[in-house]
Design a protein around this nucleic acid. Structure first.
Lengths: 127, 127
DNA sequence: CGGAATCCTGCCTGATACTG
DNA sequence: CAGTATCAGGCAGGATTCCG
């Protein structure tokens, strides 16, 4: 389903619950997607490398996240038939087009942590 | 807990599960936060206006989202004692500093929906 | 090594009803 | 109008086991 806009232009609107871009927004917003894409900014990496960098992620969630990103065309999954097998993940051009935004999200969280913590204290005292 | 980096500088790293910035990243990544902040970019708005714009959000989640954003200092909540009561939400400077990033996230979802849909079809055929 | 499959728990989320 | 309270379901997410 597409959402018809002005001038007969067909467009998407994530504000609308039924619009596919809403579900896509749901998929790409989430810490695991953000951290996985951030980690892959350093170049192609193996599964175990990603698991180590994205601290605290379970095998299940990492696999699930990477699979959905592969399905959506944001990264490629390359299997090298060594023994044991080597699996490499790499951002595609599409993935790189989103990388800057999720990196900004992560940077914001890190850069404004102190400010947010201050507001929280103040808020909790007022109530 | 802060994460000690080079040169005795204290910094945060969202890659680390125990770092506060990880939890902050978790809070600000999510469709409801994204859509709420996007909606508030048009200026101060009332609760009912936000509920209408952010289609599909339940009262519970909207209230919960706005409350956490208020607590974190990203927006202000102003109660005007009319009858019935009027409640207005407005972005703070801190909230505005994040607004661009979440807007980019929403824009990406809308702008790349077709590409992603194509990749999905191809992926599903290959498997 | 890089998963897949299974089970299980919790909390996220939505629906409903009620209130100042 | 702008919530709060409560209940109930589903799925995110962890732990464990097994496989190529």
């Amino acid at each position: 389903m597409k959402c018809v806009g002005h001038h007969d232009l067909v467009e998407y609107d994530a504000f609308l619950a039924a619009c596919p871009s809403r579900q896509l927004l749901d998929r790409i917003s989430g810490k695991w997607v953000t951290l996985a894409l951030c980690a892959l900014d350093d170049g192609p990496q193996r599964y175990s490398e990603l698991a180590r960098r994205v601290d605290g992620v379970s095998q299940k969630m990492l696999t699930q996240t990477l699979r959905s990103l592969e399905r959506d065309g944001l990264l490629t999954r390359t299997v090298t038939p060594t023994v044991p097998v080597t699996v490499t993940y790499e951002l595609t051009d599409l993935g790189r087009s989103l990388q800057g935004t999720v990196a900004a999200l992560r940077a914001w969280a890190q850069d404004h942590m102190d400010q947010v913590a201050g507001h929280r204290q103040e808020f909790d005292l007022r109530t």
